[in-house]
Design a protein around this nucleic acid. Sequence first.
DNA 1: CTGTTAGCGCCTTCAT
DNA 2: ATGAAGGCGCTAACAG
Lengths: 345, 345
Amino acid sequence: MNPRSVTLRDVAKLAGVHPATASRALNEEARARGLVNPDTVARVMRAAQELDYHPDPVARSLKTRRSHTVGVVIPDLTNPLFPPIVRGIEDRLAQSGYVVLLGNTDNDSEREKLVLTSMRSRRVDALVLATARRRYNLLAELNLSDLPMVLVNRVVDDKAIPSVATDDVAGIGMAVAHLVALGHTRIAHVAGPQALSTGAGRHNGFLLGMEAAGLEPDPALITFAEAFSVAEGVRCARALLAGRVRPTAIVAGNDMLAIGCYQAIEESGLKCPADISVVGFNDIPFSNRLSPPLTSVRFPHYQVGIEAAQLVLERIQSPNGPTKILFLPPELVVRGSTARANGVA
Amino acid sequence: MNPRSVTLRDVAKLAGVHPATASRALNEEARARGLVNPDTVARVMRAAQELDYHPDPVARSLKTRRSHTVGVVIPDLTNPLFPPIVRGIEDRLAQSGYVVLLGNTDNDSEREKLVLTSMRSRRVDALVLATARRRYNLLAELNLSDLPMVLVNRVVDDKAIPSVATDDVAGIGMAVAHLVALGHTRIAHVAGPQALSTGAGRHNGFLLGMEAAGLEPDPALITFAEAFSVAEGVRCARALLAGRVRPTAIVAGNDMLAIGCYQAIEESGLKCPADISVVGFNDIPFSNRLSPPLTSVRFPHYQVGIEAAQLVLERIQSPNGPTKILFLPPELVVRGSTARANGVA
DNA sequence: CTGTTAGCGCCTTCAT
DNA sequence: ATGAAGGCGCTAACAG
């Protein structure tokens, strides 16, 4: 009665065949290749059904060296950016009979090493990495190079690994263009950590966007956060507001930083957007309910997850296929945190 | 060089012993029971180190029937309630060398069955279930009764399964008491789905809380949502506002519903909290940044995850231990969405 | 087309 | 304290 105890041999015995034959009968591929008599197949199938047989994936893995398991490594599930991505990954993988092993690293190399080691030893068939370091010597170091792998929400500098991300440069470009259209010229940037590809990409996007608008980015109006956190947003925005020239708008590296900006602006007795406009990035849930509702660059998180899973499946199938780099288009969601610059008609 | 290829036999050969001996040398327990010469242990350990040997958990599982894997089943990772819980679970389990297999069900029985089947067949050592159905015949049905199991954020009616949750009744009680202290008497309730233990528990808590305050709950002021969603919150709140007696305060079954109430109140030209106070439940991230900042019942989500993992580990260790039911205390976080009732001095 | 054989990597008696 | 042997459940190669 214990489901564990029903083994392939039981099925074989009931069907009156050798275990190996039963194995073939139950194996999609062997069947397709006509390696087994349809009659036998039917008999075996019936027996399996009757006994409520479920093959043991552990035993199978031991033999086939495939676990039908994919490791998903992210910095922190608690960051609202990741849940929809992870869901997308899981949904797509589930369709193909794969299962997700989740690991958080907190952007800590040691933890990351632990997580990756644990996943490797558990025989994951592939990895999806959403940790955002730009250089990834860790991979070589851990001898993971032979494991299929897809990056999410970032690309490595040399683009040697398949990735799914949004176009940070384009996204920030839209934000800058929007502010410029509203008459802003003293536009500041609270940049994310430059060791992360998103932080660096958006900083770069800011410089390019300003240039494209014919504005010279003022170094005094750019501050660098050490983490994508509200606290760092506050710190950076305070620095900006205490500076010689006050900006009329801030482009934040992400929504957390933007919320930090809100707080610093409030503290200093100013109003957003009346005195200072703020734009975020990611369009996290309920950003439409913030006060004021946050203008933000959105990209399809769930879809990113789906596509990443898709790539990873392709990669598992044919490890030497082309290295696809997929960019999903961002979109600017305009809400109440941006307004015409003061003193502009 | 391929890490996969380093096997126990290689270690044994290098150490000049039989594989079985190497196994014992590497096995904590065998060592402790003095089944192996300390000298040998040292030699084997060194060899293992030198070869960078990592035991293969798959092979080990096949033998020991333990996968060091725990299935975590939730309705939807995208619900902000769950990420911190899942992180708590993962963090605690990782400490003990366990790994999390994640599955979303969307509260759909079919999907749930699939997920559970997949997990069982993958030989998870235990399950953590955060799906909130009150009755759980599915468990019996899937023959899962022998699998250690812990419920999170809910309890089954007969309390036969270990659980970690908050005290919904007490939490809602605090919300009601708070409103009463502010002079409210016409207090409405937007209840969550009654098939979910949280929905039912909070509804019950509402009735008890009103009673405790000497108020008679008015059935016309209670509406039932069909899901914990913003949309359902809007629908229910609209119904309330269209009713004969208008409430001066609404206790929502959770924060999503509360946000729905915000929207319905706005639509009808009223103001929160000036005209109607609103209290939520869960204190989701950034609820302090909503407009107005949401008064909500908070409980320690991350800690719930930690404790659930703890229980599950105990359960794996001794499946027949006592059935612990753990309640973590809720706390009322008062913010801007609640104010004195109109017309009260 | 089916049965035989062997072994994935590890652990656990049983002898010695 | 160590070695030998067998097997967890499944599948791949090879015979027949």
